[in-house]
Design a protein around this nucleic acid. Structure first.
Lengths: 215, 215, 215, 215
DNA sequence: TATGAATGAGAATTCATTCAT
DNA sequence: TATGAATGAATTCTCATTCAT
């Protein structure tokens, strides 16, 4: 067993690393400037690789954006899968989902801006994706089960739609974080300092639990 | 002798009309393509005016965007001012605010995308605005009073922060509408058909009222 | 004799003042940026008058430049006429001419850059001027007489051409002043401080007098 | 197997050739129209290369001008270095310097107009040059030695400053050539025909030698 | 005489993309 | 797989000039 990899293996691994490096650089760039404002030249610089290579791997700017978008979805879906909400009691599960959403957005700010760009373009990039199904959250079904379990136990009110709730949980975090710079200016106070963030999380938990809990 | 307009008034009115026409065209363009994707040429076409005139009145693309942003804020603030929430009972006032927010976003989709662009650029354009104060919502103070009135009457729970609630109400509509194209694809169902919209509005009212009402 | 001017007189005088103001502003602008770099807008600003008025009086940029050029020549020719060299002894007259040239260029730096621009354009503006004859220096003839007087008296060497000498006297000052910014950098010392200027003037007098004087 | 060029050498040489071709075209354009009047489009045409390439190599118009200016200085300095004045007797050396200056300006008319443009912009481009030191003439020191040698031998007068003399020699040629189009018009005679040029050179030699020689 | 509004032609610069190796 | 050179089509912005009053 030699430590020396076969040439082809090396090549392959380099290729994969290059792809990954480009994808990361592109994610940052798209996140900072949007699809229209992103520059292939800067992505090349950021990645330390040649601009031509970006075209070699991703064909053009739109397909690069699509790849970035898919990777972003894949990543959050993986995190969601790791949540293990099924092990928790209904109320605890809901709370954990709110906290997770908030923390994930906080730790992955690129995700928000990339979603924004994707929406600015009417979801064209998702639609053209071959992996579109994979983008659906594994949580929707699970959330439905949790709501049902809570309803049966009498804790939760009935008639709650899982998709609506999922969107609401996301929206409460999303709007605050995605728009924090203008909101901070308009309200004249920093929305991103630790105290403000902790208050926001408490508020959101109260809103969501205040809604799902029977009283 | 017509009542029409004095020559000087005409002149002034023409300039103002040109400014307004450009602003409207720019708002559409920025809304459709974002700041980075918007094209001055297209704004000129859209407005039916000479490209040069855009620079004559707005100096450059960024200042044009700033003007569009200011106008967008001014418009929603005016609508908010016309709401007359103070005349309503607390719960009705809250419900009306939720409905207003939803409807305003629905009827002014430009507002959402322009806000997104402003945030992509870290609020730079708002910060540089001379009218930044005017952007603050007149509703925040009023909302505080409504919450207090509801608390005293025993209807509402205590300890609700007006800014947090305002952001939450906005966020519930905003996320749904701003991201509707990707959400529709991911969830595999149209979020913008009449039934879906009416369901969303009901859900949001339940969430917010479920939260503020004592039980 | 009323202090009140007739309306037409007022108008005329205002018109003349406007023309003069524009001419001065244009002279500064052309001097600072050259013909190609000068901006009609800035000339309007500088003059405090409307841009349209510039066209009203001067038709276009080139004719404005021509007017500036003519005015510049007219001015130096007037100063030359005031010199009264004929009253001096030959050597003193030559020295005074050197000093006058130096001081005029020093006090009218616009003159140099405007001449440069005129030459960049191959003298086209002078050629098209109706007052081209007026541009010829009244000194050339006088300088010839001075040289002749000096030669006869034995002071001066013979065979000196007045035009050549005139050009040489101008050139010694012109090059130093017109190129002072690059020369200062290249030689690493300020050419425009009082000591440097006084040294230059001495040197030039020595060169010219060293040449014309028999020994 | 040809001695020709290795692939890498070819590449490099192409890039260098492109740079050189652009530089030459730019020099002509700047010379003809000044910095403000020069057009990047025309430089591209002149060079037969793509306009984009100009930006690829030189970033912008100002840096292109700076490169042209540096090249112009480098070229004249090289010619000066080849003069070998140190081999001549003092008076012959001075005469040769006058002749060289005259001929160099005659054969490189671009040099004069480019210097003019550089000065119009207050030497900004030289100041920002990294090679500013290299622009200093190697002749200044040598000229000082020549003057000293002549003084010791009794041929030359004492107290002559090398920088002043260098500037004077340059100025005598520069003014005549740089301003020849307006001077020709004003004096009503061609300054650039062979006879006029030969007379000018004689005159300048007489002026300079008449000054440096003891009598 | 004076001026604010408007414009077409152009100018610098940018950008995604391809070539050649 | 990797890269420096090259390009055509935009894109923002500028400028001299004219219109209308």
């Amino acid at each position: 067993m030699s430590v020396q990899k076969s040439p082809s293996a090396t090549k392959t691994r380099d290729a994969e690393r290059s792809r990954a490096v480009i994808l990361k650089a592109a994610s940052e760039e798209f996140s900072l400037f949007g699809l229209g404002g992103a520059r292939i030249d800067r992505i090349a610089e950021r990645s330390g690789l040649n601009k031509r290579l970006i075209y070699y791997y991703f064909s053009d700017k739109d397909q690069l954006f699509q790849a970035v978008l898919e990777a972003a979805y894949r990543k959050i879906r993986e995190s969601e899968r790791d949540l293990n909400l099924e092990a928790l009691k209904p109320a605890a599960a809901i709370r954990k989902l709110v906290e997770f959403t908030w923390n994930y957005y906080l730790e992955n700010p690129d995700f928000l801006t990339i979603l924004n760009s994707a929406n600015l373009h009417k979801g064209r990039h998702i639609q053209e994706s071959n992996h579109a199904r994979a983008l659906n959250s594994p949580l929707i079904e699970l959330l439905g089960e949790i709501l049902e379990k809570g309803r049966i136990s009498g804790e939760f009110r009935g008639g709650i739609d899982a998709v609506q709730l999922y969107i609401s949980i996301a929206g409460l975090s999303y709007f605050y974080l995605s728009n924090n710079s203008t909101l901070s200016i308009i309200f004249g106070k920093g929305l991103m300092n630790p105290k403000a963030k902790s208050e926001r999380l408490s508020h959101m938990c109260e809103v969501i639990l205040g809604y799902v809990l029977r009283n």
